[in-house]
Amino acid sequence: MTALAVETIGLSRRYGRRWALSDVSLGVPEGSVVMLAGRNGSGKSTLLRVLATALRLDHGSARVAGHDVRTERDFVRRKVALLDHHSFHYEALSACENLEIAASFLGCPSDPSLLARVGLEARADDPVSGFSAGMRKRLAIARVLLQDAAIVLLDEPYGELDPPGFELLDRVISELRARAATVIMATHLVERGRALCDRALLLEEGRLAWSGPASEMPTETPSVSAAP
């Protein structure tokens, strides 16, 4: 039986009085590539941020790489890399300096070749403030690769990327699969997700509406009762 990289039981999270996630129970096997689908506001980003320990959960439990996200936050963070809507970079610093800073906190040497891998070698010494949204996303991908994490959470990774960027990301996901990393990717690009992912999770109004093989994911989302 394959061990679970991510397991949640009754996971709930609210913003003020609105429940963004309600009673979400799921399991993601180690080494699998999972698509997280759902409409805008369905809770995809919140779920990824809770699993990455960027947000606390309000009810239920979640274990990531065998560690409780509530009580073993630092252990979880060592195992997880999050590609967020925000790039996590300092705009006044160059791409190279941003990677060096991340490397110094990770305790590993910085790898300038990562910038070449994401197509930013020519802009390595330019401040990030002059980067386009797509270039920032590429730099964020380089940072995720630097982390070399066992579990990679990608929130709308194709957003802002150009077609060569799409191909770059497809290659990155294939490489992550090849080294048996677990990938959970929130995306609206369902056809691309079906082609890349083993499994799919469908969120609707903060609840898990469907889960199964990615190739069988329904186009029309089944209705679920409203979140409390």
């Binding site: 963070r77 967020d84 996590f88 970079h89 920032r136």
Partner: peptide, 16 residues
Amino acid sequence: SEMAERALEGLLLLPA
């Protein structure tokens, strides 16, 4: 500069 692109949060998640 810590808040513009959530750089501080990014460092906390490394974890720093």
